[in-house]
Design a protein around this nucleic acid. Structure first.
Lengths: 197, 197
DNA sequence: CCCCGTTTTAAACATTTGTTTAAAATTATT
DNA sequence: AATAATTTTAAACAAATGTTTAAAACGGGG
């Protein structure tokens, strides 16, 4: 593994675990067993390192989600696939949601500029299809924006309070995973129930 | 206003806006127009100041929400009231949800100890009533835990991505408020639809 | 008016932070 | 093998952080 990759991998782990400000570049360098100066040699700054990592991470997951949303599938299929895929991603990376939120709240002004962010909430195609189905009389006339936010909320929020859920319901890591697997159906059925005539 | 209150008020504003680590005690003291040392005179440390503020803030809102959950109202009424009250609280304090999440992720181990946290997710009474209604055959047999998390997700998550929602849909501050007002019905109807036989 | 507890002040403290420097080591090129 | 370019190193930098000190200012009660 190259030095650059060692840095990125170690830093990602720490950023996910402790957040940006609570992770020092010294901690990264010690854990990655490289000299501190290398951090500023490969990336120009801590901020830059973070952005690089953040983009890589989102770039790893967003294409799959977006391809579902922009596929030619019927809307109910699409919802089902999206929910399942998104939950699978978050089961693989449970801290992702809070990670994204923390970036959002640290740089509240930069949102517009970040393409990677827009691709995470790429509702354009979906909303169009949704409105079309409403027009055709196939589904109930709900606000597409409200609907999409419902879907996002139901999928992602539980992961931000994972510890609370586990604590409250005395779950192990495995039971939580199972809980989220069951949740795929809970969410899908709920969403489809809302739009079904 | 007493010095202590000036500190708490100023610090709360900054903590909400920029988070714990990005807010320095110097910034607080300058903005509150008090000497830095007073911060450690009244509260013993920055951490302590934060905890004090955090408890005050949650203590201001949780009782109302808990009184709804533990009231003798029928479950559908209860859901409606809870959704409305919670959204009203968050409209008044939109950063509250992320604020709580940031505490949760900064102190992932301390959760159990914090009583104030438990009172925020005080599902005991509600789940009991929910199961009872299922037993009586009044509502569909869904998992109360899943249901409560649905409710929490639908209510709180949109506030954590407020900027994204506003940006994406070109909303002003006022249209966002209106959007969340409409959302009260969206959520209530959705939740009741899920449990209605 | 003076004393005493409370409150406020200015200054300094030790650490930690991200970043830079300039030389050394390593690798690649001719 | 000699030179050039890249990578790594140890050390230092300035700035910012939370916290503490010890003296000063304040205010009410005897």
């Amino acid at each position: 593994m190259t030095t650059e990759d060692k840095i990125k991998k170690t830093a990602l782990g720490l950023f996910l675990e402790k957040g940006f400000e609570r992770t020092s570049i010294r901690e990264i360098s010690v854990k990655a067993k490289i000299n501190i100066a290398l951090l500023n040699y490969y990336f120009r700054s801590k901020e830059n390192l973070f952005n690089s990592i953040f983009s890589s991470l989102l770039g790893k997951y967003t294409p799959e989600l977006n391809s579902i949303l922009s596929s030619p599938l019927p809307i109910e299929e699409k919802i089902k696939l999206y929910v399942e895929e998104y939950i699978d991603i978050l089961l693989e990376n449970p801290k992702l949601t809070y990670f994204v939120l923390s970036v959002l709240h640290r740089n509240p002004d930069k949102i517009t500029k970040m393409k990677i962010f827009q691709s995470l909430y790429n509702t354009g195609n979906f909303s169009k299809q949704f409105s079309e189905e409403v027009r055709k009389g196939n589904i109930k006339g709900t606000d597409p924006t409200q609907f999409f936010i419902n879907m996002l909320s139901l999928i992602t929020f539980p992961f931000t309070i994972k510890q609370v859920i586990m604590e409250k319901n005395k779950m192990s890591e495995d039971t939580f995973k199972q809980f989220m697997q069951e949740r795929k159906n809970v969410i899908t059925e709920m969403l489809i129930l809302t739009i079904k005539k």
